[in-house]
Write a protein that binds this DNA or RNA. Structure first.
Lengths: 363, 363
DNA sequence: CTGAAAGCGCTTACAG
DNA sequence: CTGAAAGCGCTTACAG
């Protein structure tokens, strides 16, 4: 007992004892924390269990120590294997996009011995989604971290999670998060640019863009990439050639259709994602326009869909599986208390030319 | 202590005390089991931890009691919420099919407070996939049950899981499992039949079928549904009009293409799944055949893909989300020790007519 | 608000 | 093989 008191004291203001000694680093116990903080085990127990009868000052000190020593309550500790669990939250309906991200996260999970619990962000939007309760549930369930796909979390949720000490990584965030949120994306700007560049190289000049939500960070980047490419070629983009609504098939069909009905109709359209592009293809087909002879179309993502269209879709490939893998490794790193090289990482996009793009008609 | 001994004894040969008394049913502890078995807590602890130094007879008695009282070791017990966790294993690459199943399972999980851990069956096929170790891992990780999607588990895995007491439900099993495996599917025979019926009703007589693995139960049912519909109309199916290879786009393209190159080419093709159907559409397009004017094509599944093709695909809808929901509820029921009405359930398929089917040419 | 003390559920080294 | 005993990590009712 005296022994543990002493070692506790030594450690109080330095990093936890990890490094030295046996590989088997004993788990931090309440006793260690109590000794470091100079309070009783009972008090530490109360802090851990969120009891009210603890002085604010005491609580703060103990909480800090719990964090520093990475205390894990036994209810959260797993059996023998003690496998780590990360929660992966998908926003919106599950589809071709999310399935690839899930696959990447699950793959990386298998490699690192991490269990991936998949959930829907929308479900949580229901009753029990108040920030604090949400964070508490995740902690209570022993999640080592959380990955959110394409979601728009409120600041409240982000801070609740941070306070609870649960690391968060967002994939392709809809709202461009600040430095306090770690995120993984792809080079959307470069992607938008190279799709457009590809069409310019084919000889197109009347190039339109149909994209997702105007507020979405990744869509903005793609749109501006499109604009930059046009400007580089000395072409000013016409407002009627640009639509930003949603990442959906129907948007491609309607907005794309509108543009194809224009007197000066575009000879090529950059789709903000694969589903939009496919909607555009359908709009063209309905109007008796052939792809790629009359109109060229590009997608963005390279989901399962893009090889199955007629003709197969030329796309900007987003490495969705790899993004999932990087996201998992990042939460794991954060959970281990390691610093990340950067709070935001972008993986490279890549142009994949298939059958939906060709030189413009009458060239 | 005497108290707990006594109540333990009372319970020994009857069902656990669940029913009576407070809603809050105290967890079974080693002490209860020890009292029931008439051995010490230490001995029970050894059995739970798989120590070797316990007589076989003693071990058997204690194990039986542990099972009867549904003892859950604290390392497995979750915090407050004590949320149940079910493992969902996907075989093969994640795609439009699995994403809908996952969504259904996750939805039902959210409703029942169950966490869904998603994994790949193929990963587990690697090193550590020996039946016993596999089952032990799942038990150790505290999984209440396992759902396998479209996988072909070996008998060894099924029995290892059964011995470990972890319930298993298979969705759309590739190998038709016996009564010892619970499974969820859809009315594939009826589906194959109504797709074919639909084409017959439109006036087609030269109808082909391109499907998945010959050994796959669901494919067999679909194929035989196709045959039954033809026979009902007094048409004998020609062997060159039938191909069973795999549920893949390329199969549709190649096998479908082969049939479309036939001197007496079919005027309609039933696809064994959506991706096959889309492959067939592409094969037609490449040959300058229009859909549905020259060839009609049907899909099977009603995945995200089917509304996005040009023209949109007429399909047999499989209620994949609902199948996922039913699977989850079934494992949960099994985990609770309740009996299922049937070890195999099939949900209804449904014909959804879209744009890829029409009367045959020259009619 | 704090902590000594009693207690719980579990494990393990060791005597028999 | 078995279990009494010591011990661990945690919680909680209660005295101060």
């Amino acid at each position: 007992m005296a022994e543990s008191h002493r070692s506790g004291r030594n450690v109080a203001l330095t990093a936890p004892e990890r490094s030295a000694g046996s590989r088997h680093t004993r788990r931090t116990t309440l006793a260690t924390i109590a000794a470091s903080a100079g309070v009783s085990v009972a008090t530490v127990s109360k802090v851990v269990n969120g009891r009210a009868d603890v002085a604010a000052g005491t609580r703060a000190v103990v909480e800090e120590l719990l964090r520093r020593h990475e205390y894990v309550p036994p209810s959260v500790r797993r059996a023998a294997g003690a496998s780590t669990t990360v929660e992966l939250l998908i926003s919106g309906p599950f589809g071709v996009y999310s399935t690839q991200v899930i696959e990447g996260v699950v793959q990386a999970g298998a490699e690192t011995g991490t269990s991936i619990v998949v959930g829907s962000l929308d479900d949580h939007r229901q009753p029990g989604f108040a920030p604090q309760g949400w964070a508490r549930r995740l902690v209570g369930a022993g999640r080592a971290g959380v990955i959110v796909v394409t979601g728009a979390l409120t600041g409240g949720h982000v801070t609740a999670l941070a306070l609870a000490g649960v690391p968060l990584v967002v994939i392709d965030p809809l709202n461009m998060p600040g430095a306090e949120v770690t995120s993984v994306g792809s080079t959307n700007f470069a992607g938008g640019m190279s799709a457009t560049r590809h069409l310019l190289d084919l000889g197109h000049e009347r190039i339109a863009y149909v994209g997702g939500p105007p507020s979405s960070g990744c869509n903005q980047a793609r749109l501006h990439g499109y604009r930059a490419a046009l400007e580089n070629s000395g072409i000013t983009s016409r407002p009627e050639y640009v639509a930003n609504e949603d990442f959906a098939y129907d948007v491609g069909r309607r907005a794309g259709g509108r543009m194809l009905d224009l007197a000066a109709r575009p000879t090529a359209i950059v789709g903000g994602c694969d589903t939009i592009a496919i909607g555009i293809m359908e709009a063209a087909r309905v109007r008796g326009l052939r792809i790629p002879e009359d109109v060229s179309v590009t997608g963005f993502d390279d989901t399962e869909l893009s090889t199955m269209t007629s003709p197969p879709l030329s796309v900007i490939r987003q490495p969705l599986r790899e993004m999932g893998r990087v996201a998992l490794k990042s939460v794991l790193q954060l959970a281990a208390g390691d610093a990340l090289d950067s709070h935001h990482v972008e993986l490279a996009t890549e142009l994949v030319v298939r059958g939906s793009t060709a030189p413009p008609p009458d060239l």
